[in-house]
Amino acid sequence: MKFASEFRDPKAAKVLLAEIAKVADQIGATKEKPVHIMEVCGGHTHSIFRYGLDKLVHEGIEFIHGPGCPVCVLPRARVDECIEIAERLGVIFTTFGDAMRVPGTKKSLLQAKADGADIRMVYSPLDALELARRNPEREVVFFGLGFETTTPSTALAIQQAAREGLGNFSVFCNHITVPEPIKALLDDPHMCLDGFIGPGHVSMVIGIHPYDFIAQDYGKPIAVAGFEPLDLLQSVLMVLRQIAEGRAEVENQYARVVPEHGNSVSLAAIDDVYETRPSFEWRGLGEIDKSGLRIRAQYEAYDAEEKFGIGYAAGRREVEEAEGCACGQVMTGRMKPVECPQFGRGCTPEMPLGALMVSSEGACAAYWQYGGARAVEPAE
């Protein structure tokens, strides 16, 4: 495939792997004392396991799987609130497919749909807008979910609804931002992180400078990376070279796609429609200051929280994780998926206990799908 095969070249991969091994040896990385590199994005986690990069790199490199999966970090209370909206009379609730099977306290959106709620999977908030146009007698709610990558499209949909005066369209806003949870992890005294691989698709929108604090305040290197195997290998090498040279900088491996200062049109739409929440709850991380977005007062008519009196508009509800679920520990790098006692037992793709086994970017799903579990299981 043009523009993909070039970044999957085995010969180029061997050259990068040899250079990674050379630098890893230079800085004294070993299996017993590895360099811990967190790939923040769940898409990177899946690429690492899909192409077996965790097995190919030097044994002194350990990948730590971060909280960069927006479906995975959504607390169960927010899923419950989605279902509460969806089950109201006259509502058409729309969502991306990844969120359909995430378990709430009692059921998932998919199970609520089976129970009779009108819940529809869409590929874009524009699909939800079209449903609102075609069903003026119904309330159409879009589940706004994701990091900075998907935030602009939801903002543009709200702007369009306002221009058209679509009073039966609203967004249940659960958009969140990447830099703040990284800071929360770096402030955790129990975390051991030597460098980061930054999410390329987020930086397509926000650029690379929102990560400056990682290098400047914490002295950790970060390389914003693409999603092909050579992208990830080059990013690992960039991080290792920074460590070897005593540097801590934000480097842009994904420069073919990521502009230094982001996408001005997207950033303008985000700034127009959203403001920062005082705090937002993350699964496994708790409340993180200024890590979520909410719809500004000028677009309040399109804010489902205000329209239905739910979520933060009604006061946050404390909901604990399912008993035995270790999603929080896995997402913060404290535990590998196979170390969770429920992995492959009480939690499988067919009957998920936690969101990480459901999402296409979840670490548990990556281990399950690509054999990562077998790679780390102890020998008999």
Score class of each variant (00 low, 15 high):
108 S>A: 02
108 S>W: 07
108 S>Q: 07
108 S>H: 10
108 S>T: 14
109 L>F: 02
110 L>W: 13
110 L>V: 04
111 Q>Y: 06
111 Q>H: 12
111 Q>N: 04
112 A>S: 14
112 A>E: 07
113 K>W: 04
113 K>C: 05
114 A>H: 12
114 A>R: 14
115 D>S: 12
115 D>F: 09
115 D>N: 14
116 G>V: 04
117 A>H: 10
117 A>F: 09
118 D>M: 07
118 D>V: 12
118 D>E: 14
118 D>F: 07
119 I>E: 03
120 R>Y: 00
121 M>F: 03
121 M>S: 04
121 M>I: 15
122 V>S: 00
122 V>F: 05
124 S>H: 12
124 S>L: 12
125 P>L: 01
125 P>I: 01
126 L>R: 14
126 L>A: 13
127 D>V: 02
127 D>G: 08
129 L>K: 07
130 E>P: 04
131 L>D: 01
131 L>K: 04
132 A>P: 10
132 A>W: 08
134 R>T: 09
134 R>M: 10
135 N>M: 04
135 N>A: 00
136 P>H: 07
136 P>F: 01
137 E>Y: 00
138 R>F: 00
139 E>L: 11
139 E>Q: 15
139 E>N: 13
140 V>M: 05
140 V>L: 01
141 V>K: 05
141 V>T: 05
141 V>Q: 03
142 F>N: 04
143 F>Y: 13
143 F>A: 04
143 F>T: 02
144 G>Q: 11
144 G>H: 13
144 G>P: 13
145 L>E: 05
146 G>N: 12
146 G>H: 12
148 E>Q: 12
148 E>L: 09
148 E>D: 09
148 E>I: 09
149 T>I: 10
149 T>Q: 07
149 T>F: 08
149 T>Y: 02
149 T>V: 15
150 T>S: 12
150 T>N: 09
150 T>D: 04
150 T>F: 10
151 T>I: 13
152 P>A: 00
152 P>H: 03
152 P>S: 03
152 P>V: 06
153 S>M: 14
153 S>L: 15
153 S>P: 06
153 S>G: 08
153 S>C: 13
154 T>N: 07
154 T>K: 00
155 A>N: 04
156 L>S: 09
157 A>Y: 07
158 I>P: 10
158 I>H: 09
158 I>R: 09
158 I>A: 08
158 I>N: 02
160 Q>L: 14
161 A>V: 03
162 A>W: 09
163 R>I: 08
163 R>T: 08
163 R>P: 06
163 R>M: 08
164 E>M: 14
164 E>H: 11
164 E>N: 10
164 E>D: 14
165 G>V: 11
166 L>D: 00
166 L>T: 01
166 L>A: 00
166 L>E: 00
166 L>G: 01
167 G>H: 13
167 G>R: 15
167 G>E: 15
168 N>Q: 08
168 N>Y: 10
169 F>E: 06
170 S>Q: 11
171 V>Y: 12
172 F>H: 11
172 F>C: 07
172 F>L: 14
173 C>R: 09
173 C>M: 13
174 N>A: 05
174 N>G: 08
174 N>K: 06
